[in-house]
Design a protein around this nucleic acid. Structure first.
Length: 453
RNA sequence: GUGAUUGUAGCUCAGCUGGUUAGAGCGCCAGAUUGUGGCUCUGGAGGUCGCCGGUUCGAAUCCGGUCUUUCACCCCA
């Protein structure tokens, strides 16, 4: 056998059967975005490297896929760097483009670049693949789809509320039971302040974000290892173990963070969002979770995450507010808030729970058997008429053995097969076979649509 | 980037401490059944055992490298 063709590590093909399911998810999500006034946006798969570099931290820079310059790209490279095999510094000379790492930074770039043409608040959604040179593992790929919805140019907390409504509606439509976890970076900053480690906010958030996964002991160990004082870790304990209803948690927090202005601001924001939500009768529970931190450093206010209740898979949607995302591209004071639906994980959840409505997976409704050139032309006309009535119809292209044609219909899960040979043509009828029951009968062409529907 | 793990027919996998011609199930093709799929039976095609090198009289089997799969860590969706 010849060498088997393959695809790069961490990438996937999507078969027709998978695509109809994925499209169902995307269409459902798009439909909801649309209802709230968000418009579609697409940006190029590749961006200039300087747009991408430095936006995701050192770790992120390493995970960027870089694109080699065209032509004789080594010609311009520095001899010394080449001789020393200094890949890091050489990269800048032989590559100036990279594949996008997420949709948020290209979006920020777009907003800055087109600020004159946009009307604010600007609401867009974007569903496109992104690439990361990570090592693939369970549920993690090198090419995967993000499904972002953001609004920039408005500080109102109503945007946070709206995004939560969208989450609620999307998952209700898809039939996935979820819980929305809510927190606020200002609260986390307040906590860091109160325990006397204001400058260690990132280390603290990264560590407590793991609480659910690795447990309190290990989180404390990690905090100690990062250099937090025992006293600070001690002060943190009651906060990590806060329990009760949202309002009970908020009450306790208010006391704990009494000394922190930022912290108070965060509490106010959370309270307001929860307050407005109360009147909206969401199907989904919104839970204040102080251990929700999310790694991304650019979040400054609300942060949220959505977890499936019936499947162990981690978060399937997440996001937050970022006050200065466009600042890195020179546009100050444009606040935004957005969330990203994890399409691949949602797909996994949908599959595991088998939540697709039956019409999603059905394709062709009726197939005409091909008995030869003359019969096929006759069938083509009938098929055309049925398609006009909105039926999904195909005519088998080859005059193959009937067994093969029937088998094709069977494998493709086609509901009905029409047999039209010389005899049927002369009589002006078709023999219609129901592939599920095996029954067949002679009917007039104009009756077909009625029977199949 | 670190540490493991996997690779044998289209697919899922057997193949012992190295020893003739590498097997099974499913799928595929053909026939039983010339205008009838699914079920059954019969027959057939299909593999330089991921790739490169080494050890050996002899390698799917042992060793090294490389790619790939899966998993954990880091980080993240």
């Amino acid at each position: 056998m010849a060498k088997k063709p393959s695809i790069p590590k961490g990438t996937r093909d999507f078969s027709p059967a998978e695509m109809v399911r994925r499209n169902y998810i995307f269409d459902t999500i798009k439909g909801v975005f649309c209802k709230y006034g968000y418009m579609p946006l697409e940006t190029p798969a590749m961006e200039n490297l300087d747009t991408l570099l430095g936006k995701y931290g050192d770790e992120g820079d390493k995970l960027l896929f870089k694109i080699l310059n065209s032509g004789d790209y080594l010609k311009k490279a520095d001899e010394t760097l080449l001789a020393n095999k200094d890949s890091n510094r050489l990269t800048g000379q032989i590559s100036e483009k990279g594949l996008r790492y997420d949709l948020t930074v290209p979006f920020a770039r777009f907003v800055v670049q087109h600020q004159g043409e946009l009307t604010f608040p600007f609401k867009r959604y974007q569903i496109q693949p992104v690439w990361r040179a990570d090592r693939p593992q369970k549920g993690r790929y090198r090419e995967f789809f993000q499904c972002d919805v953001d609004v920039v140019g408005s500080n109102s907390l109503l945007n946070e509320v709206e995004l939560i409504q969208i989450v609620d509606e999307v998952f209700r439509k898809l039939g996935i039971r979820v819980v929305i976890k809510l927190n606020n970076r200002k609260v986390l900053a307040g906590i860091a302040e109160i325990i006397g480690e204001a400058t260690r906010l990132t280390d603290i958030t990264v560590a407590i974000d793991k609480l659910e996964k690795i447990g309190l002991e290990k989180v404390n160990a990690e905090l100690a290892q990062k250099g937090l004082s025992a006293e600070a870790i001690d002060k943190l304990q009651p906060i990590l173990s806060l329990s009760g209803s949202n309002s009970q948690k908020l009450e306790q927090l208010k006391e704990i963070l009494a000394g922190s202005e930022t912290g108070q601001k965060g509490i106010d924001e959370i309270s307001e969002v929860l307050d407005v939500l109360k009147e909206l009768n969401l199907a989904t529970d919104v839970e204040l979770d102080l251990t929700l931190a999310r790694g991304l450093n650019y979040y400054t206010g609300a942060i949220f995450e959505v977890k499936a209740l019936d499947v162990e898979i981690g978060s399937i949607t997440g996001g937050g507010r970022y006050d200065d995302l466009t600042g890195i591209f020179g546009l100050k004071d444009v606040s935004g808030v957005g969330i990203s639906f994890g399409a691949d994980r949602i797909y996994d959840v949908m599959n595991q729970l088998d939540l697709y409505p039956p019409e999603v997976t059905s394709a062709t409704q009726l197939m005409f058997v091909n008995f030869g050139a003359v019969e096929a032309r006759y069938c083509l006309r009938l098929a055309g008429e049925l398609r006009q009535k909105g039926l999904r119809v195909e005519v088998f292209p080859d005059n193959a053995k009937l067994k093969k044609q029937m088998n094709y219909a069977h494998k493709k899960n086609i509901g009905f097969v029409a047999l039209v040979g010389e005899e049927e043509m002369n009589k002006g009828i078709v023999t219609l076979k129901d592939m599920n029951s095996g029954e067949q009968r002679s009917v007039k062409p104009e009756e077909i649509a009625e029977i199949i529907r």
